[in-house]
Simulated scan of single mutants.
Amino acid sequence: MIDIKALWEKSETATNAWISIPNAWTAEIMAHAGFDVMTIDAQHGLANDLSVILPMLQAIATTATVPFVRLPENNPAFIMRMLDAGVVGLICPMLNTAEETAAFVKAAKYYPEGNRSYGPTRASQIYGEDYAAMANQKTITLAMIETPDALKNIREMAKVPNLDGFYVGPWDLSISLGYTKFADFEDASFMKILKEIVEVAKEHNLVCGIHAGSPQNAKIFTEMGYKFVTIINDSSALKAFAKNTLSEFQGLENNKPSRDY
């Protein structure tokens, strides 16, 4: 398995694929593409319980890709269940204060760093019987920045012990800030905000990730200092490929060659 923290220590950027299709086969296909990380979206994606997520984790485990989950909410029971199932990284949505962020991080860490309950059923199977001894170091916690309150409190959130970084949700952030065009990466004022977020992360030795949406956007954000970039969504990619394939065929049909068979 790829050591994501080691990548970040070398100032390298980790590539991430966003997974919303609740299916082990499509997860396996995506994992074999070679992304550093795959994040199963349990908030807005269709895989939102362990009975669906577990086979997806097993499929991802056939590769070196690291499994993350975007949590549905800041729920300690769900956090612990995902980690026990073998998830390495957690992205927590809708965090607005340092107190909320601290609760998230503590649920992901064993004593003395946190209050995670012991029971790593699958994690100890795939990572070794000494899993609990190294789990606090290996587990990755990212707090989402997607609201005005999070922006206001970001410096206090950055001080939370054992937080690994931020993950920016530019769609929700732009909506909540009142922008009429969502996630407009050509809007100078919005890009200034995204730059300020990554600068705060750097000041506190945190990693900053972002939902870039495309390789082109990911390059821009990598140059800005983001070290974790989501460049594809499985549902969006499938939809775009299907539409492009149909459009290509229809174009060929409208320009039929003048030959007989």
Rank of each mutant, 00 (worst) to 15 (best):
I2P: 08
D3L: 11
I4S: 11
I4T: 13
K5I: 11
L7P: 01
A14Y: 02
N16K: 02
A17G: 08
S20H: 01
I21F: 03
N23K: 01
A24P: 02
A27Q: 11
A27W: 12
I29W: 06
G34R: 10
G34T: 02
F35Q: 03
F35L: 12
I40C: 07
Q43D: 14
Q43T: 05
G45Q: 11
L46A: 14
A47L: 10
N48W: 05
N48V: 05
N48A: 07
S51E: 09
V52T: 00
V52A: 10
P55L: 04
M56N: 04
M56E: 11
M56F: 04
M56V: 04
I60G: 10
T62H: 07
T62R: 08
F68C: 01
R70P: 10
R70C: 09
P72E: 03
N74V: 05
N75R: 00
A77N: 03
F78L: 12
I79R: 08
I79P: 01
M80Y: 06
R81F: 11
R81L: 02
G86Q: 06
G89R: 02
G89W: 09
I91N: 14
P93N: 06
P93A: 05
L95N: 00
N96V: 03
E100Y: 06
F104G: 06
K106L: 09
A107K: 03
A108P: 03
Y110P: 00
Y110A: 03
Y110V: 04
Y111F: 14
N115F: 10
S117N: 03
S117D: 07
G119R: 07
R122E: 12
R122V: 08
A123M: 09
Q125T: 02
I126D: 11
D130K: 02
M134P: 01
A135V: 11
T139Q: 13
M144T: 13
I145Q: 01
P148H: 07
D149Q: 07
L151T: 10
K152T: 15
N153C: 13
N153L: 14
E156W: 05
A158P: 06
A158N: 08
K159M: 13
P161W: 01
F166V: 06
F166R: 06
Y167K: 05
L173P: 00
Y179S: 13
Y179D: 15
A183N: 10
D187L: 11
A188H: 06
F190P: 04
K192P: 05
K195V: 05
K195Q: 11
I197N: 06
V198R: 00
V200Y: 13
A201E: 12
K202Q: 15
K202Y: 15
K202D: 15
V207D: 15
H211F: 15
A212F: 13
G213E: 15
S214N: 01
S214M: 00
P215A: 04
P215G: 07
A218K: 08
A218Y: 13
F221Y: 14
F221I: 00
F221K: 11
T222R: 05
T222I: 00
T222C: 06
G225D: 15
K227T: 09
F228I: 01
T230A: 14
I232C: 04
S235A: 04
A242H: 01
K243R: 03
T245M: 12
L246Y: 01
L246I: 07
L252G: 04
E253L: 09
E253K: 10
N255R: 02
N255D: 15
S258Q: 15
R259K: 14
Y261T: 11
Y261Q: 13
